[in-house]
Design a protein around this nucleic acid. Structure first.
Lengths: 171, 171
DNA sequence: TATGAAAAAACACGGCA
DNA sequence: TGCCGTGTTTTTTCATA
């Protein structure tokens, strides 16, 4: 199904070792996946062939997942983004999982989080304008069984980091 | 600074036209940026050179931004993710902008949204464990001037779409 | 938009510390 | 086992029609 994630469900104990060089490679590729092996090699001070082998291995072992281009949302007519904070009435596992699967197939949904706290679900959506946002909220979310309440938070500004930090010991 | 985003602040009126073929290319590349031009061309039924020229043009004109690899968080010792919902006391523009810039330099922060509604800020963080989350919340967020309250929402499950939808007329 | 040639990159493999 | 250099294949890039 998802060829980019061969080992998504691995237990942490089974995740292969990493060293500082691997982490350096990951750092570069997270910020710019179009770097050539040669450029990466120069940056970290290894031979291109060695660097290539490390990248290949990390893909193989499920450390590196897919790579994705980022598209300018404005170029697609996306003029507004929002977070929908959703409360559900029933917390039956099957229902919640199904809910997640359902909403992620809605084109306007960028990501969906099942969370603890005041809300049950936080959903990041992209739309054309406020009218579109209203229709989306009503037609795709409020209407669903199990949804008791939705709060809509317009996104005024956003920042993103592409590099994940490292919280484990390195070989 | 960010070479991948030559035209981030473009007005929508200045964004170049797209046609259905462009959208098809974008769809493929958002899901897998490692596809070769040849593979894309075969998929959409165009010559590789033509396809290549379209990709080049979309990069040039700021439709296509950067490309990033996705890393398995477990491989880095990331065992827990959370959303921090933050209330600020002051809504002075300069303070809020500075706040956003500051927190995005915290390694554990993956994204930060300035929003309307009950909270002012929603911050997605990645940590090793609950102890780490507690320390992060206290040391990096609760402590900052202007923060009046934080609600922490543990992320139990998440889904993501890589393809942005299109809400504009195509050439 | 397509063709074809040149340049560059990715990839496989054998040797070496 | 991990690193390096080389040869081969594939992809990218670009000039030209």
């Amino acid at each position: 199904m998802d060829k980019d994630r061969p080992n998504e469900s691995w237990d942490i104990a089974q995740v292969p070792d990493l060293d500082r060089i691997d982490v350096g490679i990951l750092r570069l590729l997270q910020n710019n996946a179009r770097l050539s092996v040669k450029e990466i090699a120069a940056e970290i001070g290894l031979a291109p062939s060695t660097t290539h082998e490390r990248v290949r291995r990390m893909r193989e072992t499920g450390i590196l997942w897919g790579t994705h281009v980022e598209v300018n949302p404005k170029a697609l007519g996306i003029g507004l983004e929002a977070l929908l904070m959703i409360e559900l009435s029933k917390h039956n596992r099957g229902i919640v999982d199904q809910f997640l699967d359902d909403i992620v197939s809605v084109p306007e949904v960028r990501s969906a989080f099942l969370v603890s706290g005041r809300y049950d679900l936080v959903v990041h959506v992209v739309v054309h304008d406020t009218q579109h946002l209203k229709d989306l909220a009503l037609d795709q979310f409020t209407i669903r069984p199990g949804v008791t309440r939705i709060e809509t938070s317009i996104i005024f500004d956003a920042r993103r980091r592409y590099e994940l930090p490292v919280f484990r010991s390195l070989r």
